[in-house]
Computed example of a mutant assay.
Amino acid sequence: MANNYLGRDDAPIEASTWKLIDDMMVQAAKSQIAGRRILPIEGPYGFGLKAIPMGDYAVEDGIIGSTAIPMTMIRTEFSLAKRDLASFERDHLVLDTTPVACAAMDAAAKEDRIVFSGLAGISGLLNTDGAGSLT
């Protein structure tokens, strides 16, 4: 389902080329991420997850409120030249996946910055008082 929003079916790129790109992206990101090594972080969940419901609470008699944790989307961009993709698929020339790796490492760095330093209303691990309370 996540591929519906990526436009992969609209691109004239072979499945094996998408696999190469995906594998490079995962490998590059895993080489950089630190937060996921020390915290049980799950995901990615896809574009549709904007908040995680946390439950209800009584505002006053007969009125119930709800809380949710807003989800931050991390985004990076890269491009690969059409001619490079075509020569890779047609002539089996080496495809330079450096832009893919750089984008994945950038996304990993952004995730770690959020995990450790926080972001606009979201506390990070380094923003605690040492007793686990957020400052």
Rank of each mutant, 00 (worst) to 15 (best):
A2G: 15
A2M: 11
A2E: 15
N3W: 10
N4V: 09
Y5Q: 09
R8H: 10
D9W: 07
D10H: 15
A11K: 12
A11V: 04
A11H: 05
A11W: 07
P12Q: 02
P12D: 13
P12H: 08
A15W: 08
S16L: 01
T17Y: 03
W18Y: 13
K19V: 11
L20S: 11
I21P: 05
I21E: 02
M25Q: 15
M25K: 09
V26I: 12
V26S: 07
V26F: 06
V26C: 08
V26N: 08
Q27H: 13
A28T: 06
A28N: 11
A28F: 09
K30I: 09
S31L: 05
S31A: 15
Q32C: 05
I33G: 00
R36W: 02
R37L: 08
I38C: 11
L39N: 06
P40R: 09
P40S: 13
I41C: 08
G43E: 04
G43R: 03
Y45D: 03
Y45P: 05
G46R: 00
F47N: 14
G48T: 10
L49E: 05
K50C: 07
A51P: 00
A51W: 06
I52W: 03
M54V: 04
Y57C: 04
V59M: 04
E60Q: 12
E60T: 11
G62N: 00
I63S: 09
I63E: 06
I63W: 06
I63M: 08
S66A: 14
T67F: 14
A68H: 12
I69D: 11
I69Y: 11
P70I: 02
P70C: 04
M71T: 06
T72S: 09
I74Q: 04
I74M: 07
R75T: 14
T76Y: 00
T76V: 10
F78C: 07
S79T: 10
L80Y: 06
A81H: 15
A81F: 07
A81L: 14
A81W: 10
K82Y: 11
K82M: 10
R83W: 07
D84T: 07
D84M: 09
L85I: 14
L85D: 03
A86V: 14
A86Q: 15
F88C: 14
E89F: 08
D91S: 13
D91E: 12
D91Q: 12
L93R: 15
L93G: 01
V94N: 10
V94M: 08
D96S: 04
T97K: 06
T97E: 01
T98Y: 05
P99Y: 00
A101K: 06
C102S: 15
A103L: 02
A103I: 02
M105N: 02
M105G: 04
D106K: 03
D106C: 07
A107M: 03
K110N: 11
K110Q: 14
D112G: 02
R113W: 09
R113L: 08
I114Y: 06
V115L: 01
F116K: 00
S117H: 15
S117V: 10
L119Q: 13
A120C: 06
A120F: 08
G121P: 03
I122G: 11
I122S: 13
S123Q: 08
L125W: 03
L126W: 12
N127V: 10
N127Q: 15
G130Q: 01
G130V: 02
G130S: 00
A131T: 10
G132A: 06
G132I: 07
T135E: 13
